[in-house]
Structure formats: C-alpha cells, structure tokens
C-alpha cells in the first residue's frame, strides 16, 4: 500500500478511473503474479460506518483485554507489552492514556482504523482499490493482482495488495512497523504482522470484514477478528487530528479530570 497525504490527488485519480463495479473485469498480472480472471467485481460502494473499540470476536467490547478471560493468543512478551500500555478503553482504560494516536497524532494504522466511529468508502478501479477514510482525512491505495515487493521497508500502513475472490475483496498487507495498536484496548503487533482483510457485502446495508492476524513474533498462533459495518446515509465530515487542538482539549478537560479530588 502506498499511503499519501495528497488526498485531493487520490480523489481525482479515483474519479477519473472509476468503473462500474458491475462491469466484467479481466486484470493482467504484474510480473510474476498469477493471472486472475474476474467475471464481476463486487459492488462495495457506499459510506460504511465503523464502531469502537475492538474487532475481537470473543471480546467486541474490549472488556477482557489482558485478563484471564482474554483468549487472544499472546506471547508472554506481547501480553506484558499490552499490560504496560495505558489505553483509553478496556479493563485498564484511563484518561491518562499513552495512546500514540492521541498523544502524538500518530497514524492509527490498520486494522485499528476500523474501530473508530467514522465513515469509510471504497473506490474500485480496474487497477487499484482506493479506501477513503473520514478519520483524519486518510486515503489508502491498494493495487490489484500484484505481489508484494521483496523485503518492503517497515511502514505505518504496510504494503497492501488486493484481489477479488467471488464477491469478496481480499486485501493482503505485510511490511508494517510495530508502532500501531490493533485496536483501542492496545493489543500490540510486531513488524512481522501479516494481515488479511476480507470484505464481503452480506446484504445491501451490511458489510462484513473478516480479519486474519498472522503475527508469529507476537502471537502463538493465527487468530481472527470480525467487524460488520452499517451502510450510512450521511456524508463525510472533516475529521483531523491536530496537536494544537489536542493540547487545548487536554488542558481544558483531561488535566482537570486527572487532578486529585479536593
């Protein structure tokens, strides 16, 4: 995936090359990639609304994170890292968070981008699937039917490629750094994370995301997540993370709330 700050350029290029998802598509492969014939491209159009705080199937509310009831297959050092964080939500949720996306406006990354209560949409073209996120006015470019580069540099958003399997869009991402959290309760990942996102419109108003989290450095086995997004009728509203606004909010709300009772 190539992540760009040139959001307007993304929108323009997406608009120029957008096709009807119902059109038949045959995509030639890039060098070395197996050719994949498409008879139809699933229609993923619409504004989809996410919801907090996790995509964990057994812990959607995040209340179990790091407790004895948490069935996430942490390696010991991963569990220790989870418990060392000060997340905003979950059993150790605190106002005095060290969440880097709040403290520093760090990129939220994937899959955590799906647990904010904001919209996202797909723009499907013959060569590329674009994701446009309301949160922080982000765009994601995902080339179709290509292979990952060898030994990609670790980045916030990793390197993503995609293909269609019937009515499902499959996005495969590697090449992450280890600085983002998987969700709002602070589940960590390593730079060996291999993430597979499978988007499937289960009916007109519901889009299901099935996640495969394969990260042998951080977890003892592959584990799975799920999120169902609702089709929203509202339009995008600007959302931007600003350090100056965050600091103003901290001074007004967070700091008074953290001071000891008089």
């Amino acid at each position: 995936m190539r992540h760009t700050a040139l959001f307007s350029a993304l929108l323009l290029s997406a608009a120029l090359f957008c096709i009807s998802p119902a059109h038949a598509q045959t995509k030639a492969s890039a060098a070395g990639a197996p050719a994949q014939k498409q008879t139809a491209v699933p229609d993923l159009s619409g504004n989809w609304l996410g919801s907090p705080p996790t995509f964990s199937i057994s812990d959607p509310s995040g209340k179990k994170a790091g407790t004895a009831e948490d069935d996430t297959p942490y390696r010991p050092e991963t569990l220790a890292k989870l418990k060392s964080e000060r997340p905003e939500a979950g059993p150790r949720g605190t106002f005095d968070t060290d969440d880097p996306r709040i403290v520093y406006c760090d990129p939220i990354g994937i899959p955590r981008i799906y647990v904010v209560p904001n919209l996202f949409k797909f723009v499907q073209t013959p060569d590329t699937v674009y994701q446009i996120f309301e949160y922080n006015t982000l765009g994601r470019q995902i080339p179709l039917n290509r292979q990952h580069p060898k030994d990609p540099d670790p980045t916030w958003w990793g390197d993503s490629v995609a293909h269609y399997e019937g009515d499902t869009l499959v996005i495969d991402t590697v090449g992450f750094n280890d600085k983002t959290w998987l969700d709002h309760v602070g589940r960590p990942h390593s730079d060996e994370l291999h993430l597979i996102e499978r988007f499937h419109r289960i009916d007109h108003d519901n889009l299901q995301l099935d996640l495969t989290i394969d990260d042998p450095k951080a977890y003892t086995k592959t584990w799975y997540g799920r999120k169902v997004f609702k089709l929203s009728q509202r339009d995008f509203v600007e959302h931007s993370c600003s350090m100056s606004e965050n600091e103003h909010f901290r001074q007004n709300i967070i700091d008074p709330t953290l001071t000891k009772a008089k």
Partner: peptide
C-alpha cells in the same frame, strides 16, 4: 458513550 480518550474519568 465512547470518547476518543475513553470514559474512565467520568
């Protein structure tokens, strides 16, 4: 209610 910093202070 889910604030971006959580609700632990309230």
């Amino acid at each position: 209610v889910f604030a971006h910093h959580g609700n632990a202070g309230y």
